[in-house]
Design a protein around this nucleic acid. Structure first.
Length: 419
DNA sequence: TCTGGGGTCCTAGGACCC
DNA sequence: TCTGGGGTCCTAGGACCC
């Protein structure tokens, strides 16, 4: 059996831990630049606020119901996440961290029953970290996800639900909307609904060949998983990413090439640091700059792929290639709204495939990077950066309602007043 | 006026090979 | 004028996930 544990309304729950006045009130957390709603408390969900809605579209609701609006505080959420995951690693046999707020757990080697194990895990996390969680269990990942959805929607489950038998024996789960199935997104949902298939039961009861014909192999895998045949393995080795991306939308439009250069230097440096942390090297890089995609007629989306002559995770080197790529894709006179750097074709840093004409002293480069990383780790992020990153003022993020880094910065630790 | 960021996997089509 | 069959590899773009 496989379990899926996820944190309820994760970002909101993190904020509530350190600010109890947010409890029992409608709360939303916004994306970078305070753009869209990315997390909602149950009270906000009941008010009908959809996931992902731009905040300017719900100004009225916010005012009318006094909804608390917060900027996202990834330092806090990241720390809370690692506390939850650390507990899972300690108490569960095999864990795949699937996202910041959820993890799959392999329950095949536990000596107690699946329900008991799941309920116990939930209790441990809630008592030790304080974030409310739910657990779904099934024979496959897709069934575990579905069990989790059901647990969340039905208070009588108390947040834990196990799909022990074949799916068809659970009439309530069978009646869930088809897009609650993991892997059925907007497009598949529309297609299925247009063909009269609205529920989990309809997907389950469709023929395998029909699903494969119209929803291809991915849809077929989902079908098999719903029927209890596992097709998607637990992957405990998530540190081996296949690509790394750093990108941002800009708080305001950027026109100057130099400002883009500074931003891209920051993104490239950030990718390099992430690579070093994972002990990987990149062999390719993609640099992109976009104008505002909501302005349909003049939308420019420029991107350049660069093959790196030698696999690297060096900041200066990646910055250099990012600048060169920018020169090739930059168009004068446009207002840019977003840019980013993606590194891919990643390999372990244990082996470097050398290049006969490589002019760089890789050993010295590595020592320098280690020192810089150490200083930034101990003295704070951004203590040492490349001068090419400039002062980072032109494209700064908008974060007007940011809460403190309660749990990771000693200067922002919570204060308690007593009388 | 204001619209996130970071991932994975699959497919179609083109270039190229024999 | 007529113009095969089978394969690999790469890339761009789409769908999906949280």
């Amino acid at each position: 059996m496989i379990g899926l544990l996820d944190c309820n309304n994760f970002y909101v729950s993190c904020e509530r831990m350190f600010n109890p006045s947010l409890r029992n009130k409608p709360v939303v957390v916004l994306s970078n630049n305070d753009g869209c709603v990315v997390a909602r408390s149950n009270e906000s969900k009941i008010l009908g606020i959809p996931m992902g809605v731009p905040v300017f579209k719900i100004r009225e609701l916010i005012k009318r119901y006094d909804i608390k609006v917060l900027s996202s505080n990834y330092e806090l959420y990241g720390d809370m996440s690692s506390r939850v995951m650390t507990l899972l690693y300690k108490h569960a046999p095999a864990v795949e961290v699937y996202s910041i707020d959820e993890a799959f757990i392999d329950l095949s080697n536990t000596h107690i029953g699946a329900y008991e194990f799941a309920a116990n895990l939930k209790k441990i996390v809630e008592q030790s970290v304080g974030i409310p969680v739910g657990v779904g269990v099934g024979k496959t990942k897709t069934l575990a996800k579905l069990a989790n959805v059901f647990a969340k929607k039905n208070a009588s489950t108390l947040g834990v639900f196990v799909l022990e038998q074949d799916l068809q024996y659970y009439s309530d789960v069978f009646m869930l909307p088809v897009d609650e199935i993991w892997g059925v997104g907007r497009r598949s949902r529309n297609f299925l609904q247009n063909n009269g298939k609205h529920t989990v039961a309809d997907y389950y009861n469709a023929s395998r060949s029909w699903i494969k014909k119209y929803l291809t192999v991915a849809g077929e895998r989902t079908w098999l998983e719903l029927h209890g045949e596992s097709c998607i393995d637990i992957d405990v080795d998530i540190d081996q990413r296949k690509s790394i991306c750093t990108s941002r939308s800009f708080g305001s439009v950027v026109k100057l090439k130099q400002e883009l250069e500074e931003a891209l230097a920051y993104f490239a440096d950030s990718c390099a640091m992430k690579l070093r942390r994972q002990r990987q090297l990149a062999r390719s890089m993609y640099v992109f700059i976009y104008t505002n995609r909501f302005v349909q007629d003049a939308y420019y989306n420029g991107g350049i792929t660069v093959k790196l002559p030698v696999a690297t995770n060096d900041s200066a080197e990646l910055i250099k290639y990012a600048r060169e790529a920018l020169s090739r894709t930059f168009k004068e006179g446009l207002g840019y709204k977003k840019a980013g750097v993606i590194v891919f074709d990643l390999v372990s840093d244990a082996i470097i495939q050398g290049n006969l004409f490589d002019p760089i002293s890789r050993d010295k480069q590595k020592v320098l990077a280690e020192v810089v990383d150490k200083i930034n780790r101990t003295q704070g992020k951004g203590t040492i950066t490349s001068a090419l990153q400039g002062n980072l003022n032109g494209w700064k993020l908008k974060r007007e309602n940011l809460t403190p880094a309660y749990s990771t910065n000693i200067h922002e630790i919570i204060t308690v007043k007593t009388n």
